[in-house]
Design a protein around this nucleic acid. Structure first.
Lengths: 330, 330
DNA sequence: TTGAAAGCGCTAACAA
DNA sequence: TTGTTAGCGCTTTCAA
């Protein structure tokens, strides 16, 4: 037994004015005579009237809603992005329609398609190859991507992953490490950049690079890979993991296997998630400024919605965060 | 230069049928002659027509969107809730409108009000006192709460916090602890329950309870409180923290201060967030089954939207998770 | 099985 | 400053 909400017509009738007047009043589009204004104010109050956003957006074409599509909300990197994006959106009076594709490629397109019709713009973090995103580019929705889009000029926000891992590798080399390995996540579009940062640095120092690969950027995968990395023939003396989660899992498992960290192996991650500080040894990482990325993406989208031209990639500089999980070799 | 999307009228014109026919076709409301069906199918394909959800929901009153309001997405407890809720919603073809009130009481009401008009139902985790939620109850929106609502019979999902902390206290007592302290978070509605679980148990064993309080349920607060707890007159030999985040911060700082864990003090948290496993010593906690709570809440809401009567509190049983941060006293 | 027509609640010209 | 009017894109009787 739903009670009917009052409509703009009810207000107009009760206040003895036209619906147009009411509309202009609630939207503050115009000035009114004191009498009408006071009257309207009272009536709206009495009726508890609130305008119906559906109807509004049908006409204006604006929903005051932004779609944010990410790969996995339980990864703190994405959580921070959401946090940052949400803060900006909230300040500007927008709400967030969140889509978590749960690292499932096949879900992305249908989810994004449905999303696109409901929002004023979208921020998307996708694993789809660029050619599978054509349809998205075609749409007239304001769009901001995470990560560089190569074949088109599109507004995007990214981190300089290559530089980040270069710094990490440089740091490890400076500490005297000779057998450095990279634990990647090949499914990700960013994996290649991260690895090449490491490789560039090691090449320069004429050091070899061993590579491992995970099937997911999770702690569980770090744990899984640990024994085969550490109990092999010529185990690495330093590890650069695709992200902190993998590093955390690896470290835990290595300790269970009886290794001393960082004495037996230096371990580093990427993202600088909060929890890296609390493990022992605390995790050396590269701060990709996830929250700032979220902020930057939302601000960019807001500007585009406001009419700005922007097809640039905004690069957020990474910062090396040294902690106890890396140490000097003699 | 926005290109106009095709409307139902364009389809109708191109297919030489009425808009009503098209409408029924897309919604599968009716059977059609093979000719019309094939024709419609082709035309829709050609035009790339997709119905406008705004217009649809204006008439049907359904948005296929669920509002989820939480306190802080960066707390893994909430992250898991979102994860669970999102999964169920996605399966049922709903999307999530996320509201992160960022632990700011004054934001809750306006945010919830705006939210309510845009969704078919809401799941809310609120810190507002019950009397300030009256307006929410009045609305005809399907609603599910987290945590028990006392003064009304309302559909909700909660954990048995009291039992959880009782188990924790019981465990500590069994280990031989005599000076147990609780680090609470008085602003939260659940704080009282959690503390009373501890107190009930300690009373039964005629043991004293010391209490501390944080200003936020964060690791930073755990760190902040650590020195004053540990470097006081008669420091506790076991700590039950309001949540894992506080425990993690406390442990880190205690170790920095030179304490041996768990030898000098046993520490426990609540929530069983993923990261408790990776710190050293691994954190003993109570698993509140956050993700399952999210699932349960969304399922309940789906049923209510489907017309079910449900004013029950669904209680998710907590589970004690023993790890290395607690140890026997001699 | 199909279509005509009347709106859903609101905004945006344009007139008054 | 206020009102009239014509829709936005769609669904839903009701009639054919």
């Amino acid at each position: 037994m739903k009670k009917k909400l009052p409509t703009i017509r009810d207000v107009a009738a009760a206040a003895q004015v036209s619906t147009a007047t009411v509309s202009k009043y609630i939207n503050g589009t115009q000035k009114f005579s004191a009498a009408v204004e006071a009257n309207l104010k009272r009536v709206i109050e009495e009726l508890g009237y609130q305008s119906n956003p559906q109807a509004q957006s049908m006409i204006t074409g604006k929903t005051k809603t932004i779609g944010l599509s990410i790969l996995d909300i339980s990864n703190p990197h994405f959580t921070s992005i959401v946090k940052g994006a949400n803060r900006v959106a909230m300040e500007k009076g927008y709400t967030l329609l969140l889509v978590d594709t749960d690292e499932t490629l096949s879900r992305e397109r249908p989810l994004l398609e449905a999303l696109s019709r409901k929002v004023d713009g979208m921020i998307v973090f996708s694993r789809l190859p660029e050619q599978d995103l054509e349809w998205l580019f075609q749409m007239d929705k304001p769009l901001v991507f995470f990560g560089r889009i190569h074949e088109r000029q599109l507004p995007s926000v990214g981190s300089d992953d290559r530089r980040g891992t270069y710094m990490l590798a440089q740091h490890l080399v400076a500490l005297g490490h000779k057998r450095i390995a990279y634990v990647g996540f090949a499914k990700s579009r960013r994996d290649e950049e991260r690895m090449s940062g490491v490789r560039d640095c090691l090449d320069k120092h004429q050091l070899p690079l061993t590579k491992y690969n995970t099937n997911a950027a999770t702690a569980a995968e770090g744990e899984r890979l640990c024994s085969s990395i550490m109990l092999g023939d010529n185990p690495p003396d330093a590890l650069i993991c695709y992200n902190d989660l993998i590093a955390l899992g690896f470290m835990k498992e290595a300790q269970i296997l009886g290794f001393q960290l960082p004495n037996d192996i230096s371990v580093t991650g990427i993202d600088n998630i909060l929890y890296g500080r609390f493990v022992t040894p605390a995790l050396t990482s590269v701060d990709l400024q996830s929250e700032r990325m979220g902020v930057a993406a939302m601000e960019k989208l807001m500007q585009i919605i406001a009419g700005a031209q922007d097809n640039e990639l905004t690069v957020i500089e990474p910062q090396l965060v040294l902690r106890a999980s890396t140490m000097r070799r003699n």
